[in-house]
Write a protein that binds this DNA or RNA. Structure first.
Lengths: 205, 205, 205, 205
DNA sequence: CATGAATGAGGGTTCATTCAT
DNA sequence: GATGAATGAACCCTCATTCAT
């Protein structure tokens, strides 16, 4: 009994490990070559498996990217999950609000350079954009929530647009921050925050 | 004499028209599919010619993209060539400075939706990035020049960085502006300008 | 009347000159690149005409090679036409017989490097080999005739075979002779003659 | 252990067999059509595989020809490897020397009709000629060695030239020998030997 | 007749995917 | 489950040939 349960479980566990390894490899290859130029054979090789094995875990190249997107989404959610929780959001300084939102996001992007490398590319199958959507909309929702507290007079439609603008700014500057050498990263982040602040401050009056 | 001169001229004219048509088609196809997925046969078909004909005008797929880049560069230079000229740049209102820089650029991007579509993609051969570089650095230089006048106290290194940030913001938000439906474009542009102003204003003191 | 006759004649003359120029160009290009790699456009360009014009004179690439072969054949016939004539063939020294046959052939091949370059290649359409056949068989016939006089005891079938062998030797060594630098050509020809002599001498007894 | 070793070995064996089959097919197609006109798809089809499979074993069309050249070289080396060994080369009859050199070479060429067909063509990429060079120079070297013993008075430069001439004769006449119908082959070989003898004999005095 | 742009079949090669082992 | 050879459609590009001017 114990044996019978253990074996499948081990199998499953090994399978999940394999999938994870494949995704690691895929993240690397996608980051290096871009979605189009990355070959499934290259991903399989980077994962130390055969092309055939890759297809035992993923139905297609796109499915690999999808799964990678999902994993990124999950990781990201974890990364800044509780950042916004405090109810005293209204009381705190604007700069601190920005810090609390931006810092974990930057940390995540620095830790996962493959993320932007994959999703910044507009040359991916439609399905991929969909996979990236949840994370985008989660971020959007939270920024809107913050605006609702910090700029209560802003009419909802304007609020939605402003949130979009803020997210856009962030996403535009992230690649530069990630690509910057360690010692200049701090300065780049400061600029990013300046931009956000310059746009946010007038909304708060 | 007239005849002898006319014939080559006509030929040349026809050739240039064809090249232009091919570039139009290429802009469309590249915009739709991205550089990698765009096939030379598709471009030829979109231009209403045979694959072989395309190669009478362009040595390779990359050469087509190169030529397209060059054409964009030339068009863009024309589009906002004199926008910055006024020597009274120091006297004028910040909002007007922004208007004078942003408006022609937006107009160009709206008129040439393929531009961003092609150059936003990081999956292109090295040569292409080089083709896009002049326009980017021209823009950068002008923004720096403006900063030199409007924020003379800013140390040059900071000035360079600020210019980069401003250009980045612009380039990040342009796709949204271009993609927006006619009736909302104005509003999007307003937001873009707000962002730029929010970042610029503190630098001027 | 005079006019009516003159114009066509001039036309014809010009046409024949054009054809000749094309063949000159073709000989060069074929010699440089080989039959397969030579493009009709390259031949036309070398002849200073347009691709379309080439096809006004020759129905196809193969036809050009055919005509070139024919011209070579004619030239060659002229080159050593009377070399064998003397009835005193039986009296003369073997070495002189060889000289009288070999020298004009070598001279022709040196003067027309394109000849071997084109016909030494086995990658040509079947028709071309046919075009080269007459010259080959003419040469063969004359060598047989010589053998008939110099080695009258040789049974005809053996004679034919020997003739073939002699021609083969000659054709095998010609490219080397042609390719040799001026100052070594003489020595190469001497070797060629030695080989021929070594094979011929025993037949004469 | 046995199993673990057997599997890769089988794989390798199958791979080598496939490579060999492809080379067989290539030899045929190259022989029929020449290097240029031979298409990789035709080779693949002749080998009973798909175009893609061919490229699993050979990086390019040229690589196929290269490998074919290498195989020919190896086979040929084996074919007449020990033919020249005897130290009593000086004592033996000239005719027997010729027999011992010519017979295995002829046998090889009869057994591998594709060999000459491929290497006689001057229209191949530069790399191919290089692949054929070793065999040529090996033959050349051995002939020179023989001359050194049989015609010791010949000055080295003359010896080199004579060796070249002998090899040339052989290579020029081989195609005819190979192409000859079975029952006439013997006679052709006899002629070939006569030519060689006629050139060699005077050198020996 | 000349021109040279236009044609389009076909060549070498790649790669996502499948399948026999 | 794993392997990696096999597949074949599709890509970029060439070139012999045609045809409108």
């Amino acid at each position: 009994m114990t044996v019978e349960e253990t074996r499948p479980r081990r199998r499953q566990a090994r399978g999940e490990r394999r999938m994870s390894e494949i995704l690691d490899a895929a993240a690397e290859v996608f980051a290096d070559l871009g979605y189009e130029k990355a070959t499934t054979n290259a991903i399989a090789a980077a994962a130390g498996i055969s092309p055939g094995s890759l297809y035992q875990f993923f139905r297609s190249k796109e499915a690999v990217a999808q799964a990678l997107a999902d994993r990124f989404t999950a990781q990201m959610r974890g990364a800044h999950g509780e950042a916004f929780a405090p109810a005293d959001l209204a009381a705190v300084d604007l700069d601190e609000v920005i810090d609390r939102v931006v810092d974990p996001l930057v940390a995540f992007n620095v830790a996962n350079p493959g993320f932007k490398a994959l999703f910044a590319r507009p040359d991916m199958p439609a399905g991929l954009a969909a996979a990236a959507a949840p994370i985008q909309s989660a971020l959007l929702g939270r920024v809107e929530a913050i605006l609702a507290v910090r700029a209560p007079d802003l009419p909802p439609p304007d609020r939605a647009r402003s949130a979009r603008v803020l997210v856009q700014i962030f996403q535009a500057m992230t690649p530069v921050v990630v690509a910057a050498p360690e010692e200049e990263r701090e300065a780049e982040v400061r600029e990013l925050k300046k931009v956000l602040r310059g746009y946010l401050a007038p909304l708060e009056d």
